[in-house]
Design a binder for these strands. Structure first.
Lengths: 339, 339
DNA sequence: CTGAAAGCGCTAACAG
DNA sequence: CTGTTAGCGCTTTCAG
């Protein structure tokens, strides 16, 4: 038990304990440059005995390199962002870079704050969800001088690089599939989230394609808060109550879609004969429902992987694509007639 | 457009641009000490114009203070840890501390590695899930000299402080409730995760309490990988196929329990008359199922809050409880007879 | 292969 | 209220 419990060990402590210069200890610990095997072993041994943990703060300041990638996402309780994160972590694992995540709760001001905090640690790159940011946030990203990848969405102009899907297109495609299957009395049910730009874009693409087919949305219903499954149920009940002619329900996410599905099945309604349903995201979680919900894969993991690849490449001064659009596949499941 | 796109701005740049010493600029930016309003405004203005973002690396090194709390958890794709995180973030928001999360995937070696990485940034505290760590990890925590809170579990000896529930007790309580309701042919269905010590402890407590009631587990079934909902379904089918006398299914988490529930309802089995079910966690997500699954709240958010409070207090050299045991409440839902 | 010197960008501690 | 002087613990660079 030493006298000072607070101060942690430094390179100097290891240097003194091993009788080797700080510089050589540093070399061993980073295995950089040539060090004789004898000294290397000695240093490693004493470092372990002492329980030395290098101070990255000092290292980063001296070397002017921080192997951190800031990842800024709206939420963790959504299942979609953890999957993006998984993709990022997985591909960064092959590099010396490490992700550090910040959460914005879909609030622009919080995003700005989180971004500022993260940039103040001088990360090697930024991966940030969405293309909509405050002006100040854009300015910071622009001024940071580090690679920036905006993810999830490609309907807009990126600060630097972007990888994602076109949500407008996703909405259009689903509308076309629904029309093609013969449905005409279509309802849209989603979150009351003016700041979820991707959901908004899907909705816009959806109504646009319906319009092109001469169909107008028959009902709209929005919710906020609460359990998504329960809300899906309630919203479905409300919509059908208001308009019993509805023959299709397009949900802005799979979770509320699942709620709607369970409700319809309980009511003994013929799905997808009498009423069809579709969600969005392709969450694996929901495999195991009585019927497989029609949905569209948001390419979450691929987006994460690709974004991480771009950062890794740019950190090594390699060139990369500036725009990477992935194309989500529609899956019909058991709730959308095949044609 | 300046000549050097790479180098980011320093205090010195702001100092020169505003004609005020670096020290005073620093004071303004941290609003520390007294600075005349005139200079303060001038500094703030030029800092903003330049788009200066302070370098926390340098600041932390100089001040020997890093306002980061390392949060180390097994997984993000589980719904339980994001809620713990939410609790932590929420209460840290009232302080100057910030959480930084690391994920271990339930692997002890990865936990060790992540811990090492995080400690090398010299955080102000550590919140880490579970009481089981490698010897090296314990040693690091012990040597770090910073407050450490182990969370989720209180069945064991903490390195420093701990806050959580007793999973052994949770298992026992559920067993008692099940026996009291009159069920006797009981199956346990869970994950094949030898490293999920909390699930293991629940199982142990469960079998122990059953034994005390003269009942032995009739069937066990474990899974790994795949969609939990689907797995719950399959496992339930398998168990009932093997042993049609089963009258209760205890699942190690709500998600597989929900799968089992949907399966039984589809088969037209009387729940909870013929067969009862219970899960664990109390995930809000699942409200909206046809029946409410019996479960036990794991106090996730409270655990996060309490842990964060402890760290915050300890950082300010205040004393705190070393052991905080929360008591989960059983919720009978519609799948466990009330008595 | 090893060491000495000079900072990295900021803040603590003192002086004015 | 403002400025000066020393570092924080490490790495870069340049000499041996």
């Amino acid at each position: 038990m030493t006298s000072d419990e607070k101060r942690s060990l430094t390179l100097r402590d290891v240097s003194e304990a091993s009788g080797v210069s700080e510089m050589t200890v540093s070399r061993v610990l980073r295995n950089r440059g040539d060090v004789s095997n004898a000294t290397r072993e000695r240093v490693l041994k004493t470092a372990k005995e002492l329980g030395y943990v290098p101070n990255k703060i000092a290292g980063a300041l001296a070397s002017q390199r921080v192997n951190l990638v800031a990842v800024i996402i709206p939420s963790l309780s959504n299942m979609v962002f953890p999957e993006v994160l998984a993709g990022i972590s997985q591909t960064l694992e092959e590099t010396e870079l490490q992700p550090v995540v910040g959460v914005t709760d879909y609030l622009p001001e919080k995003e700005e704050k989180v971004l500022y905090e993260m940039l103040s640690w001088r990360p090697s790159g930024v991966i940030i969800a969405g293309l909509e940011h405050t002006e100040a946030a854009r300015a910071m990203l622009d001024a940071s001088g580090i690679p920036v990848v905006e993810i999830m969405d490609v309907d807009g102009k990126p600060v630097d690089a972007m990888v994602g899907i076109s949500h407008r297109r996703a909405g259009r495609e689903m509308a076309k599939a629904i029309l093609k299957a013969g449905y005409r009395n279509i309802a849209f049910l989603g979150t009351k989230m003016p700041l979820d730009h991707r959901a908004r874009k899907r909705f816009e693409g959806f109504t646009e394609a319906l319009a092109k087919g001469g169909v107008e949305i028959a009902e709209k219903e929005f919710y906020s808060g609460g359990s998504a499954l329960a809300k899906g149920r309630e919203m479905t009940a409300a919509v059908l109550d208001r308009n019993p002619d509805i023959d299709f329900l397009y949900f802005s996410n799979d979770m509320i879609g699942a709620g709607g599905l369970l409700y319809l099945l309980e009511k003994g309604i013929d799905v997808p004969g009498q009423i069809g349903l579709a969600g969005f995201n392709g969450v694996e979680l929901l495999q195991g429902l009585p019927r497989q919900l029609a949905t569209m894969d948001a390419c979450r993991k691929e987006i994460g992987q690709k974004a991480a690849e771009i950062i890794a490449a740019r950190v090594n001064d390699e060139d990369t694509d500036m725009v990477t659009e992935l194309t989500p596949k529609i899956s019909y499941g058991d709730t959308l007639k095949r044609r």
